[in-house]
């Protein structure tokens, strides 16, 4: 990746991360941990890899994103707003009565959202179906499935993976957010997943790539490789940290859903927002 592109995507990631923090702090609560760990992924997808037209969300040739770990909507909404799918002010309406931005993504409410999710596991099968449909129509389109490491407790995910691999749905690029934690704690303590890489291979995914969850260049390269790998199933594992990008939130004992109800947490968010704002200003100058 050239320097200019990397700079641009890094800037976009900073904007998305700042939006996430601002909107959750404004709301006073929300799914922070899992939103933060997909910020760089969202920047790569929306800043570079996706074939999309934000002014025409229903464009027939668009690539699709299915956020199966639907509770991380705040990161997706921030990326969509940064790309101009809707005005940024709308971000502050998250979860308000009548909002277009519900806590869990809703394809009937938000431009740019093509599949409704929130019941963990279900997005995996939907993504397989979308990718299948794209193939049936003979189209050269991609579907990016983003699934949580805790979410992979759901058997449905593995049913979908079997279908994706058996039918060689190479266009369904499975991205696992391996941020090591779920709601009640660390994935290894809740229901030990052992080795995702080995599991995906055993399930028939012949291109399984593991990259650092915040490494923009590595994520983008992995997607390039997956796109080029046309005769088998593709998986990318984001080796990451829940709450990524802000030390305080990475280290917070319970960072799945946080409440902004004390000085310490509010200061941590404010400091991070200020730091990101400074970085963004400097980069844009």
């Amino acid at each position: 990746m050239d320097k200019v592109e990397l700079k641009e995507l890094t800037l976009l990631a900073a904007k998305i991360r700042k939006d996430v923090l601002e909107l959750l702090k404004h709301r006073g609560y929300g799914h922070l941990g899992g939103s933060m760990s997909i910020v760089e992924l969202m920047a790569v997808l929306y800043g570079k890899q996706l074939r999309i037209d934000p002014s025409n969300p229903q464009w027939e040739d668009r690539d699709m994103v299915v956020l199966s770990k639907g509770h991380s909507g705040p990161a997706w909404y921030s990326a969509l707003a940064e790309k101009g799918y809707f005005p940024k002010e709308k971000l502050m309406t998250l979860n308000d009565g009548g909002t277009m931005l519900p806590s869990h993504p809703d394809r009937t409410k938000t431009p740019g959202v093509d599949m409704t999710t929130g019941s963990l596991g279900q997005g995996t099968s939907a993504a397989a179906g979308i990718a299948y449909g794209q193939k049936l129509k003979g189209q050269d389109r991609y579907t990016y499935l983003i699934v949580g490491d805790g979410e992979l407790n759901e058997g449905q995910c593995w049913e979908a993976f079997m279908l994706i691999a058996a039918r060689k749905l190479n266009n369904c690029i499975v991205i696992i957010d391996d941020n090591k934690r779920q709601l009640d704690g660390y994935t290894k303590d809740i229901l030990n997943p052992f080795d995702f890489e080995a599991k995906m291979k055993a399930f028939g995914f012949d291109l399984v790539q593991k990259v650092k969850g915040t490494d923009i260049e590595a994520i983008s390269d992995a997607i390039d490789k997956a796109k080029a790998h046309k005769d088998g199933a593709n998986a990318i594992i984001l080796d990451g940290i829940k709450g990524a990008g802000v030390k305080y939130f990475e280290e917070l004992k319970s960072n799945h859903s946080v409440k902004f109800n004390n000085d310490e947490i509010n200061k941590a968010a404010d400091d991070a927002i200020a730091e990101l704002a400074e970085f963004i200003e400097k980069e844009e100058a």
């Binding site: 963990l120 596991g121 805790g150 979410e151 407790n153 759901e154 779920q182 709601l183 009640d184 809740i190 229901l191 319970s254 799945h256 859903s257």
Partner: peptide
């Protein structure tokens, strides 16, 4: 995986052997 949301951490603490965490 909803002990943190349901207060069943109470049972987890009081009866660790009969608290069965099945994951999501």
């Amino acid at each position: 995986d909803l002990a943190g949301a349901s207060s069943s951490t109470i049972i987890q603490k009081d009866h660790p052997d009969r608290f069965i965490q099945v994951g999501i």
